[in-house]
Amino acid sequence: MIIRIFTFILTLLLFAGLTYTVLSLPKQTKGLGETVSLQMHNSGVSNPVTAVLMNFRAYDTLLEMGVLFIALLGVYSLSTSQKEKKPLLQSSVLKRLGGILVPLLLLLSAYLLWIGAHAPGGAFQAGSIVSATGILIFLSGWKLDLSARHFFVRLLIGTSLLVFLLISAVTLFLSHTLLEFPPSYASAFIFLLEAAATVSIGVTLFHLFLSIFSQPKEEH
């Protein structure tokens, strides 16, 4: 009980302190919006968020794909049985609905990937839709052998990092600077990176779900 009150008071103090800090900030905070818009014409895309993510701070995105990959490795390392993955639901409605939705979802994800260059959208949104499609297929009870024992599946998971490394090598060769895209080719580079990221994110998220979902419920 004493610990509870103590923690409560402590968090309350933290809240008060941070509130004071936020209120003390000047109204006109200086961000990087202007700097970004000055360089937009060199970025190869017209959506500023994509420009930051895939060009100005593309290195962060490379490391972040690494984080996602590591999480999958960690989940794999603890997964016990990879053999039987029984779907939870046996519903004919779901099956039919899946049949209609899957092509639509894939189309939607392709659209999001493409629109990301100009408007909100991009690899992460498209990738999550791909993984949702995978989950829908799995829940509908369709057979889908995407175990990481297949080289092809592992390649799909690693696609994004491989493309990143390839483009890193090209840019280092061109200008001795990592991930420096020549403005005229920037949009091609970015599209390549985003397409690869979509595939990897989609497959990785789907596998994360699958491995966690099909953990045995009891110790054998």
């Binding site: 970004v36 360089q39 701070r57 290195y59 600077t177």
Partner: peptide, 11 residues
């Protein structure tokens, strides 16, 4: 200077 941008835009 990653990406050739330099801070504050790049890393």
């Amino acid at each position: 200077l990653l990406g050739g941008w330099g801070a504050p835009l790049g890393i």
